[in-house]
Design a protein around this nucleic acid. Sequence first.
DNA 1: AAACTATATGTCAAGAGTGACATATAGAAA
DNA 2: TTTCTATATGTCACTCTTGACATATAGTTT
Lengths: 188, 188
Amino acid sequence: MATTLGYAILGLLAREALSGYDVTQRMKESVGFFWGAGHSQIYPELARLEEGGLVAHSVVEQRERPDKKVFEITPAGIDALGEWVMQPPPRRPTKDELTLKAYSVWLVDGGEAARLFREEGRRYEEQLARYEQIRGWMEEEWADDIGRPETPRFASYATLRRGILYERGNAEWCRWLADAVEGKPEGV
Amino acid sequence: MATTLGYAILGLLAREALSGYDVTQRMKESVGFFWGAGHSQIYPELARLEEGGLVAHSVVEQRERPDKKVFEITPAGIDALGEWVMQPPPRRPTKDELTLKAYSVWLVDGGEAARLFREEGRRYEEQLARYEQIRGWMEEEWADDIGRPETPRFASYATLRRGILYERGNAEWCRWLADAVEGKPEGV
DNA sequence: AAACTATATGTCAAGAGTGACATATAGAAA
DNA sequence: TTTCTATATGTCACTCTTGACATATAGTTT
């Protein structure tokens, strides 16, 4: 019924009612860790979801800000989201531009390549540190819900753990590659 | 100058001259581990690369098969590829449909979710096993080149290591999540 | 004889995604 | 006073990507 972006939005609205602007913000933080979209994709997609009866909006008038449309997920939306969750996702090729660059790294100077991959590794480590911090916070503040798979907090925690493994793997690989192109032997 | 797909193709042609059909096959194996494209994207992209002077083709007549166009990278193509490698890639959001499903996993039955994530975990483990096998083969057969960052074999080995960390992280996470939605405590 | 597979090269329509353009309110900063 | 930032919603053109359609040779299988 909906597109993948549609299900990403439904995943947010299943937690709380949001305006298109709010959805756009969430796409830069929480959900943004594993899916992405700009507002130019989000507003039309919300309209399509409403057309399909998966969400409904009401206008909220504001005094100190422009009025906004707040979207709520419908029972049909909850059903559609739950059914989509259980379908095994199609196996699409991972597209990783940094790995693609590594594939041609043999053409360039080792020292310069080391600089690039060390810098990229730093970025992954920074993101990893942010994730680890959020994880610590969640494990303290959400201690009870994290053990309950039927809560949205458990699901958020699960996706965070995925992000941590991802960033850690990337950071580790960048470090290894930077060392290797500089001629340092493995494990030093 | 070229698109990311263009650089993926140049990365292949920097190793050996290939027909469009060959490039398509490589996109399902080696390069396909971190980039993807069907032939309907590859043929027009090869034409664009040729227009830009980055590749050149010659027609090879065959008796038992249809004739083919074999593409070679030009010196300008090598230069463009090397320059692109050194540019830090734009930070695009990781798009992982399985993680997106995990974000809404709290809506569905724990037992059914466990089945899904265990099955997906198996797929990652299978891919990991394939990669580990290739790694073992490379470390035996390519032992000398793997220590030389200026060889294409080193670069291929580097991307394989990235793939191993990726699949391992995914498999580990799927196992953890399947256990968690079934109510099993951490580390059992 | 017909169907299927592998090789080989292309086009086309539709959908997904990006970045720029466009407009509006209101507070805060320069 | 002007500019900047945050909130708020939208469109548009362009590019990227996917999947189907299209054609052709030659060997293998049914």
